[in-house]
Simulated assay, not measured.
Amino acid sequence: MIRLLADPLRARIVEILAAGAACTCHLVADTGATQPNVSNHLRALRQAGIVEARPEGRYTFYRLRAEALDGAAGYLSALAEQARDSGDVRREC
């Protein structure tokens, strides 16, 4: 998840979808990226389970799966807590 969102365009797509479902044409307009580029990033996000696709007529709308982000947030929070608890611990050489 972190690796996927490290890409600035993917992170921007996720930010846009957090505000609500959008089709590819909306994402192209909002990001300024090309349609093939946006589609490739959406495919990666879909395969990772971060977004869902829903066909509506000629268009496909993409929706952010909040539960996928909740899982990543929980993992990162646990790492942060572990880092706080072990701030003075160091491994011996």
Rank of each mutant, 00 (worst) to 15 (best):
M1L: 10
M1C: 00
M1D: 00
I2R: 02
L4N: 02
L5W: 03
L5S: 00
L5G: 04
L5D: 01
L5K: 01
L5Y: 03
A6V: 04
D7W: 10
D7N: 15
D7Q: 09
P8Y: 14
L9Y: 13
L9D: 08
L9E: 08
A11N: 09
A11T: 05
A11L: 15
R12W: 10
R12A: 03
R12K: 15
I13T: 02
V14L: 01
V14R: 00
E15Q: 13
I16T: 03
L17C: 04
A18M: 13
G20I: 11
G20M: 09
G20R: 03
G20L: 11
A21P: 09
A21N: 06
A22Q: 14
A22T: 02
T24M: 09
C25A: 11
C25I: 12
H26Q: 10
L27R: 07
L27K: 06
V28A: 04
A29Y: 08
A29W: 14
A29T: 10
A29Q: 13
D30H: 04
T31Y: 04
T31Q: 03
G32Y: 07
A33I: 04
A33Y: 05
T34N: 13
T34H: 14
T34G: 15
T34E: 14
Q35V: 06
Q35W: 12
P36W: 07
P36F: 06
P36A: 06
N37L: 08
V38A: 00
S39D: 05
S39L: 05
S39T: 01
N40L: 13
N40T: 05
N40V: 06
H41P: 02
L42K: 00
L42I: 02
R43T: 12
L45D: 02
R46C: 02
R46V: 02
Q47W: 08
Q47V: 08
Q47S: 06
Q47M: 11
A48K: 08
I50D: 03
I50G: 03
I50K: 00
I50A: 03
V51C: 00
V51K: 02
E52W: 07
R54C: 04
P55T: 08
E56I: 11
G57A: 06
G57F: 13
T60D: 07
T60N: 05
F61D: 00
Y62H: 12
R63V: 12
L64C: 04
R65M: 08
R65C: 07
R65S: 03
A66M: 10
A66G: 03
A66T: 09
E67D: 15
E67N: 10
A68Q: 05
D70H: 11
D70Q: 10
A73H: 09
G74F: 11
G74R: 15
Y75I: 03
Y75W: 14
Y75M: 07
L76K: 10
L76D: 01
L76Y: 15
L76N: 05
S77N: 09
S77I: 05
A78T: 09
A78Q: 12
L79P: 02
A80P: 04
E81S: 11
Q82T: 09
Q82K: 09
Q82P: 01
Q82F: 13
A83W: 15
A83C: 07
R84V: 08
D85N: 06
D85V: 05
S86W: 11
S86H: 15
S86P: 00
G87Q: 08
G87Y: 12
G87F: 15
D88W: 15
D88A: 00
V89E: 13
R90M: 09
R90W: 09
R91N: 03
E92D: 09
C93L: 14
